[in-house]
Design a protein around this nucleic acid. Structure first.
Lengths: 229, 229
DNA sequence: TGCTGTGAACTACTTCACAGCC
DNA sequence: GGCTGTGAAGTAGTTCACAGCA
């Protein structure tokens, strides 16, 4: 039976491309605000911090929206990216865990500048429930189902301590949320239909420390080893 | 002259492996705290949310620290990962930009649980300079050089608005910091000797929205199309 | 027997290099 | 001439599958 199911030829775009398209869109928004009307792959690639060939390949997955010899029309490309990547205004964001991180996310400029709107906050601490943060009232996690409008289109952000993350994730998925962003440094066990991304800030630092360690060691090696090789 | 320099056979571990080793280390720390003494690749892989073969391959880059037929000794593996990945206690962390996000990072549990210590805060707002957040005093960016102890081993975290990010990055690099974690959604132009990682929270949401959009569309397609294929 | 360690096969992603169009 | 769009080549990363050892 599994000889009949190996073909899932990837419904859409490569993962890595989607991640970068989101960055291009951000860069285009900034350029548009500055009044730019046309941009070449080289310029946009530089603004986004990628290789120009990569950018053109990424955009070519969507269609041909550029003009050879000229470049891309900023407003038009922006519109097309919006179309392909999904319009954020339709995706309500809820945040579970109103600690320091949760509070920081509530009015994070990167969310609102992209068009996402935080619609509800949740916390396990009964002393917080009923209070407000930046105009959003905090709900108890038990009230999840009654507060959510359209669970299937909701993005759930998990900003709880790691120990609570699995339980929170289970509850969110149970309520129909299919899309999670977790800041907890634990692997979540969830059905494959759920889309999860994990941002682990401690790991980010550790990766930086490793890379830096390597380049410092390289520098020392270079100084110590014979200069003629 | 570039026919002589194409071989840089990657001094150490694959990037993707380093990223996961940091996650394994986190999981091992948790397991150790729970009193586990031995663990198999399958169990640790599940805790970290990866495939067991992947985990074994990752660890095999470091050496043979497991026992066939048994698994890995938790304490010993933890020690070895620490050795290879770099001990965080030697890497002071400074945060530039003490807005909501900066404040959240100051005492983020994921930093301290991994052994990283925030040693200084900086902000451009003169009204904040001189005040304290969680026991750390806020410095002016101009005082960077005099405040930093060992710039070459310092990790700089950029939690400023996007518009200020490039300038802050330039200043940090000018002071000798070679390791940056940026939360600003812009591509930073920096010399290649500097190690940068970018965490773009807006893009993370956008990626989630895209994937979810695809699976919802798939679901609808499945409902609409003939059930017998 | 059971689990690690690892070559080999596979898949995904990136970069090159150039044809095609403005 | 200049810049896009894209096959083809190259590289990195993942998974398989099994040999080897406790």
């Amino acid at each position: 039976m599994d000889s009949e199911t190996p073909r899932v030829p990837r419904p859409g775009l490569p993962d890595a491309t989607v991640a970068r398209l989101a960055i291009y869109l951000g860069a285009l928004n900034a350029l548009h605000a500055e009044g730019a009307t046309t941009i070449s792959s080289g310029e946009l690639a530089e603004a986004a911090g990628v290789n120009p060939a990569q950018l053109r390949k990424d955009l070519s997955h969507l269609g041909s929206y550029g003009t050879r010899g000229v470049g891309y029309d900023v407003a038009y490309l922006r519109f097309q990216l919006d179309q392909h990547i999904g319009s954020p205004e339709h995706w309500p964001v809820i945040i579970v865990g109103v600690g320091n991180l949760g509070r920081a996310l509530v009015n994070h400029s990167g969310f609102s500048s992209r068009g996402f709107r935080v619609t509800a906050l949740f916390d396990a601490d009964p002393r917080l429930v009923g209070t407000q943060v930046e105009g959003h009232s905090i709900h108890a996690l038990e009230d999840l189902e009654s507060v959510l409008d359209d669970p299937a289109a909701t993005i759930g952000v998990i900003a709880t301590p790691p120990a609570a993350a699995q339980e929170v994730a289970d509850r969110l998925v149970g309520a129909g949320v299919g899309c999670l962003l977790s800041f907890a440094a634990v692997g979540l066990r969830l059905p494959p239909s759920v889309t999860v991304r994990r941002v682990d800030l401690g790991s980010e630092l550790q990766i930086l420390a490793y890379h830096r360690q390597m380049s410092l060691a390289d520098g020392i090696t270079a100084l110590v080893s014979d200069p003629h090789d």
